[in-house]
Design a protein around this nucleic acid. Sequence first.
DNA 1: GCTTGTTAGTTACAAAATCAACTATTACTC
DNA 2: GAGTAATAGTTGATTTTGTAACTAACAAGC
Lengths: 150, 150
Amino acid sequence: MTQDKSAKKDDFDLQEFLPYLLNRAAEESSLEFQQVYKDRYGMLRTEWRVLFHLGNYGEMTAKEIGERAKIHKTKVSRAVSKLEQRRYLARNRDTSDRRVEQLTLTSAGQTVYRDLRLVAEAYDTKLAGLFSRDEAELLRKMLRRLAHMD
Amino acid sequence: MTQDKSAKKDDFDLQEFLPYLLNRAAEESSLEFQQVYKDRYGMLRTEWRVLFHLGNYGEMTAKEIGERAKIHKTKVSRAVSKLEQRRYLARNRDTSDRRVEQLTLTSAGQTVYRDLRLVAEAYDTKLAGLFSRDEAELLRKMLRRLAHMD
DNA sequence: GCTTGTTAGTTACAAAATCAACTATTACTC
DNA sequence: GAGTAATAGTTGATTTTGTAACTAACAAGC
């Protein structure tokens, strides 16, 4: 039985399958940034996402973060707790609806956010540098389309 | 304090950050296919990846699968065990090196693979249909570059 | 041929993600 | 306004992942 691991038996090739390619690219491109927020601040993926949402868009409720970032409420809840423990964010009970908490970054949280944002910017520039300006722009547009973010 | 959740305070926007966009697109585009292999066969992500590697490229060792798919050996080991339990794959000790096992799909495994491959093909066509032919091709090329698969 | 190092794969324990059930509060309906 | 439904957020039990240590087999040096 002849084995040929580069070609395939039929017209399907796993390496061309978009969900597979997207996942591989996402994993690979997350590694370097993950290293920074993990090593430097002991944060998890959901935690930096919450931090960035507050840093980038301002005061927001846990629910809003979950909807915008497509993160399940239990994950948001736990990330918020941890960020609060570390004094990176503060909760404020909404006076008109006491179920709701408005979340904001403390100044410590803002400092962390600004630091990580610099890293993110530099890393994004590096990744985009793999392509021409037009290609990079098109890539973002296509990814937004795939993610239903447009 | 004025809040404006669409614009940002500075020139960084989370929604344009490539690792974030890639992850969001990857997650979103995996959902529909995941539903199928999960509901129809009770498989996990690593399991279909292993199944597809064997189905697509033929006999292979656990180590090879791990290298090609960038999956850690413990995850591969567990996926192989589960696929073996379900009689989707068979292990064959290599006679020249008894540490190694050659893995192949059983005919039941091939049936499952063929079924899922049809679903994958149709789904890939649907996703690629969001773009022009040239754009879709460029997208795959860029993703391969980002994933270091070229 | 015996020590030392390396490799393929597994297992055990800790960390994290998922899912369901829960509390507290508000909204709706009659 | 009492009773039911809905919502924001939390907690607990289960599943899955990640990390490290392990076994078994082979390789290399002497």
